[in-house]
């Protein structure tokens, strides 16, 4: 029984690690289509990663151990986060090690070290990226907590598995508070995963970079790990949104068939969420850095309205 669950856990992590580049490839492909360009293959992100892994690493002369340690930390922390979010089944044996607040903490530790790595070399870009990233994070965090608060109000829990379970039972259908929390969650996801309008994942223009500026000095396998972790983070946020708001399809029992079915359903959900993401990204322009207060302010507003409507209307 326990062994079977552990296998599911490993399968889920493997799915996260394996399918994250595919998801990014899918998003890039959709984006090309919407912009009237011919797209690269769906597998292009795998090729990029393979290329980076085979290359040698070039380190700046004054890079310290923090710079070399960070890629492993970021990658590893994202994997731990992936072991907690229910994707295939809600009976994950490792799920109790972290509730959704700990999950936010895990992403925070990855961000903390990425920001430090950005400052390690001592270039102006790295520091700029770190400084901006920490500002965006400090604006996104209250909104994130408020969204969590709202979801946990409706489901009486902060444990992801338990939230999915309650949602399943249908008690929380048609609740305005959850609708607001969901809108807030989308806005926060855009900020946390560095998508337009907060950050442009494909830019290398100095003044508009946030995340890219921090990791500008990385090369070879270090860069590959960072990029891969970024893809997994995007994948994870989509899976998190599915677990919190649309858990239908995640297996409740341990049957292998159900789990296989859940695997297919989660991929379908991700494909759909990719479409939503591309629609948002194509429809919006990148915002100026200081307009982000309004953007993340609206995320906070949405989450707070969710909380208020829980108390007022439900």
């Amino acid at each position: 029984m326990m062994l079977g669950r552990l296998v599911t856990e490993l399968l889920q992590v493997a799915l996260l690690v394996g399918a994250a580049p595919l998801f990014v490839g899918w998003v890039r492909m959709l984006k090309c289509w919407t912009q009237g360009r011919t797209s690269a293959s769906l597998l292009q992100p795998y090729r990029d990663l393979a290329k980076l892994f085979s290359k040698d690493v070039v380190l700046a002369e004054n890079a310290s151990w923090i710079f070399r340690f960070t890629p492993y930390l970021v990658f590893g922390t994202t994997i731990i986060a992936g072991a907690v979010v229910p994707m295939l089944t809600i009976n994950l044996p490792l799920a109790p090690i972290a509730d959704v607040i700990v999950l936010v903490g895990l992403f925070a530790i990855a961000r903390f070290f990425t920001a430090l790595a950005g400052m390690d070399i001592g270039t102006a870009f790295g520091g700029m990226g770190s400084s901006r990233e920490m500002m965006v994070a400090s604006l996104a965090e209250p909104a994130m907590l408020m969204a969590i608060f709202t979801v946990s109000l409706a489901n009486k829990s902060t444990s992801l598995s338990h939230i999915a379970e309650v949602m399943y039972s249908g008690q929380s259908l048609l609740k305005p508070s959850l609708a607001f929390a969901f809108i807030a969650f989308i806005l926060i996801t855009l900020a946390e995963t560095g998508r337009i309008p907060v950050d442009n994942p494909s830019t290398h223009l100095e003044l508009t970079m946030l995340h890219e500026a921090m990791v500008l000095e990385y090369s070879g396998r270090h860069l590959a790990l960072i990029e891969w972790a970024g893809m997994m983070k995007l994948f994870l946020f989509m899976a998190l949104g599915s677990a919190l708001f649309f858990p239908w399809g995640i297996a409740i029992s341990d049957g292998p068939l159900e789990i296989a079915g859940a695997g297919i359903i989660i991929l379908a959900k991700l494909a759909a969420s990719g479409i939503v993401l591309v629609v948002i990204e194509t429809g919006l322009a990148k915002m100026r850095l200081f307009r982000l207060t309004e953007f993340l302010g609206s995320a906070f507003l949405m989450a707070t309205l969710g909380m208020l409507s829980f108390f007022i209307l439900e």
Partner: peptide, 8 residues
């Protein structure tokens, strides 16, 4: 429920 939703 619909009424609450619309109110929201």
């Amino acid at each position: 429920q619909i009424n609450s939703f619309l109110a929201a």
